[in-house]
């Protein structure tokens, strides 16, 4: 129960918000986008935050999922669920085959290679006009139907994305706090020591890369059906960078940090609209100030600060329990 306390609070928040604010643009429209961003950031955080393998091409897998769903359901009339499954399969195969050569690289070189992959996928989306609609995108994508119930309003989509997002967060929290999750974190801590403890670092890296890609593909399929329209711009290099920023801004190696980062980076531009021309400047300044003053990320930085303050007024025992949670969530 205590292990997932943060998760239950989050789930309650997601469930209650539309009760108090039905038909609020920020909840049912921006909120849905935020939910998709949360799924993507949590998946990237598994790869980047926990396993320490940077990717500047995560948007590519989001795009593969979105376009597979879009093409199969809009052009060929497939059932959206079958299209989604095909997208997952395709993503899994592609991710598996590029993972081995790419994950031999480290640091800047890995960043470059994933960046290149992201750009290639984006070019494929733009150039194959007959299939993808080219730069103009692809429309008329049908909505999802769940056991005969059609998801046809903003509020419905809020529910679907909300459940999907909570499921992904729950899976991520479970994985991190397990044998597999420890193997990921060990990989980040010291690759050679991880090997000496019997962890096959090559298969572990491949595994987490494929898993993160699959989750991104799932988010892409949802995005496709929710928007009803896709275009290559949504899956560009810039979006990959934005995803990395979400993870770093919230705090690396923290699932809640990724959730926080994704929500902040989705809502902030919306809220800054009132500043009109200065919007982008203020946005950039906020990012810079965060990294200067809270280099561990907003969420993780503030949480550690709270622990420090509490440590001063608490008994050693109660801190010990908190310390335990600090590493995993």
């Amino acid at each position: 129960m205590r292990r997932l306390a943060g998760f239950y609070i989050l789930a309650a928040g997601v469930a209650l918000l539309p009760v108090f604010f039905p038909d609020n643009y920020f909840i049912t429209v921006v909120g849905v986008t935020a939910g998709i961003h949360v799924i993507l950031a949590v998946s990237l955080n598994l790869l980047m935050g926990y396993a320490g393998q940077i990717s500047l091409g995560h948007a590519a897998f989001f795009g593969i999922g979105a376009y597979t769903s879009a093409i199969l359901s809009a052009r060929y009339g497939w059932n959206p669920w079958l299209a989604m499954l095909t997208g997952l399969l395709l993503t899994g195969v592609i991710a598996y085959f590029i993972a081995r050569p790419i994950l031999r690289l480290k640091g800047h070189y890995l960043a470059m290679a994933t960046l290149g992959f992201g750009i290639i996928i984006n070019i494929v989306l733009v150039q194959n006009g007959q299939l993808t609609g080219g730069p103009d995108g692809l429309g008329d994508i049908p909505s999802l139907t769940i056991f005969g119930w059609e998801v046809d309003s903003d509020l419905h989509w809020y529910g679907v994305i909300g459940v999907a997002m909570l499921a992904v967060i729950w899976l991520s929290l479970n994985i991190i706090d397990s044998r597999s999750g420890r193997a990921l974190r060990a990989l980040h801590g010291s690759e050679v020591a991880a090997e000496m403890m019997g962890i096959n670092t090559t298969t572990t890296k491949t595994g987490v890369f494929v898993l993160a890609a699959l989750i991104a593909s799932f988010a892409g399929s949802l995005f496709s059906h929710q928007q009803g329209f896709v275009s290559p711009g949504s899956f560009s290099f810039f979006f990959s960078i934005e995803l990395v920023t979400m993870v770093v801004l919230g705090g690396m190696a923290s699932t809640y940090g990724a959730v926080f980062g994704a929500i902040v980076l989705t809502f902030l531009p919306e809220l800054l609209v009132v500043f009109e021309d200065y919007e982008v400047m203020i946005f950039g300044a906020i990012l810079m100030l965060t990294m200067i003053f809270l280099p561990q990320g907003i969420f993780v930085g503030l949480r550690n600060l709270a622990y420090k303050l509490r440590k001063k007024n608490a008994t050693p025992d109660s801190i010990a329990g908190k310390e335990q949670n600090r590493g995993t969530a």
Partner: peptide, 9 residues
């Protein structure tokens, strides 16, 4: 070669 990102346990 510690895993400095983890608890002792």
């Amino acid at each position: 070669q510690m895993f400095f990102n983890m608890t002792v346990l």
